[in-house]
Write a protein that binds this DNA or RNA. Structure first.
Length: 407
DNA sequence: AGGTTAAGCGCG
DNA sequence: AAAGCGCGCTTAACCT
């Protein structure tokens, strides 16, 4: 088994070097403009928070914020940090925002501040003056699961979830006469869960090419697929993601804002409908305990010494890792194989295209206009056929003038 | 002054 | 927050 990984990891070294050298073209001007706008907005928010709080303080200071919220304003302490201090984390402030004005304003400030300090301020400074591009470093031997990591700058956490965040992504552009092509594996970890668990119901869902969250919702909540409400689909999506991470009723309840009993009921129903998945979860824990490690489809191992720990919290954490690592790790193996195959094709085909980024389940290319169609077709084919599992892999390809448009 | 940790949050 | 997995970066707080 080990040699399977060597066949992937060793050629990948040169692919990664090439991707790093290619670099991503980023418009420093666009980002700098956004920094100015964000600065003005943050200034307004700061003043408004100060007036709500009845005092001036440093919004970036956790300590001062704790004093203002919990001592001066007397808001209830819902959770504490591991260090025993009252927490001001996002999830806590979202809770508090239902009953008070201040937490919401703090959250807006925090969100925008993060975008400015990490992205719009910093990325322009990291543009290489010769290439006009940002050249990240990809690390092949950092993560526990076999994923790559990216640093200086990290291009695997560029914003996308908010409108302001997407504006940052819009600064990742294609050169003159070129396009950005982004190719994403669709639901790859869930598909791998279907492969590993051999659950008939889940395999069939992917075979039929249907919306898997909708299918889960219809199974768990006992409706027809067409009759699934938006809320039920959202719950099913949370269940599906939660399963990949080894989440239990407590966490699902928190995620969905329902009681623990209701969450437990959802999980019970799920395992009833997808018995193969239930077995797989149990087997993962057992295998980890017996062998001391778990492995991906291609034999990448993760040793879990704490799987037999007396300390329940640590043991349970190891159990969650035992469940998650084979899925996350197999997905990582798959995209690495795809990257090697895609680069081999790029090199011999002479299309005017470069692989410029990898973001866990996504590959990003910069492609000359005339070659966009050919590259899109070929990359989709190579990614979907990188490996042969019991479940189909599906890749979605998007094209645009910038990274945001390509999604 | 400079390094490390804690808290928080961006992404898959 | 985490009884939800994997990362890296920023600021403040803490320490030598």
């Amino acid at each position: 088994m080990q040699n399977v990984l060597e066949e992937v990891e060793i050629p990948l070294i040169s692919v990664l070097a090439l991707v790093e050298r290619n670099g991503a073209l980023v418009s420093g001007e666009m980002l700098t403009r956004q920094s100015v706008e964000l600065g003005e907005r943050l200034e307004e928010l700061r003043t408004s928070v100060w007036s709500m709080a009845g005092q001036e303080f440093n919004l970036d200071s956790t300590k001062q914020l704790q004093e203002v919220l919990y001592e001066k304003q007397g808001l209830p302490i819902l959770k504490k940090t591991p260090g025993g201090k009252p927490s001001t984390a996002e999830a806590v402030l979202v809770d508090l925002a239902r009953d008070y004005d201040l937490p919401g304003a703090i959250l807006e400030y925090r969100g925008l501040s993060k975008l400015k300090s990490t992205y719009t301020d910093k990325l322009p400074l990291q543009i290489n003056s010769e290439s006009g591009r940002v050249h990240t470093s990809y690390h092949q031997a950092v993560t526990a699961t076999g994923r790559l990591s990216s640093s200086n700058p990290n291009l695997q956490n560029i914003p996308i979830k908010t409108d302001q965040g997407r504006r940052i992504r819009q600064a990742f552009i294609a050169g003159k006469g070129k396009k950005i092509v982004a190719a994403d594996y669709s639901q790859i970890e869930l598909r791998i869960m279907a492969h590993l668990s051999k659950d008939e119901q889940l395999l069939r869902a992917f075979d039929e090419g249907i919306d898997v969250h909708r299918a889960t919702a219809s199974e768990v909540f006992g409706t027809t697929p067409e009759g699934v409400s938006e809320a039920d689909r959202r719950s099913a999506k949370a269940i599906n993601f939660g399963l990949i991470y080894g989440m239990q009723a407590f966490g699902l309840a928190r995620q969905l804002g329902v009681s623990r009993a209701v969450a437990q009921n959802y999980i019970d129903l799920y395992f009833e409908r997808y018995p193969g998945v239930a077995n797989y979860m149990n087997d993962s824990r057992l295998v980890a305990k017996e062998k001391g490690y778990v492995e991906t489809v291609y034999g990448r191992r993760l040793y879990l010494p704490e799987i037999s720990a007396k300390h329940a919290q640590r043991r349970q954490a190891a159990e969650r890792t035992a469940i998650n690592a084979p899925m996350q790790g197999t997905a990582a193996d798959v995209i690495k194989i795809a990257m090697s195959n895609v680069q081999a094709w790029l090199t011999k085909s002479k299309v005017d295209a470069k692989m410029v980024m990898q973001v866990h389940d996504e590959l990003v290319f910069e492609v000359a206009d005339p070659d966009v169609e050919q590259l899109s077709i070929e990359v989709k084919k190579l990614m979907e056929s990188a490996v042969n599992l019991d479940v189909l892999l599906e890749v979605e390809v998007g094209v645009g003038n910038n990274w945001d448009e390509a999604h």
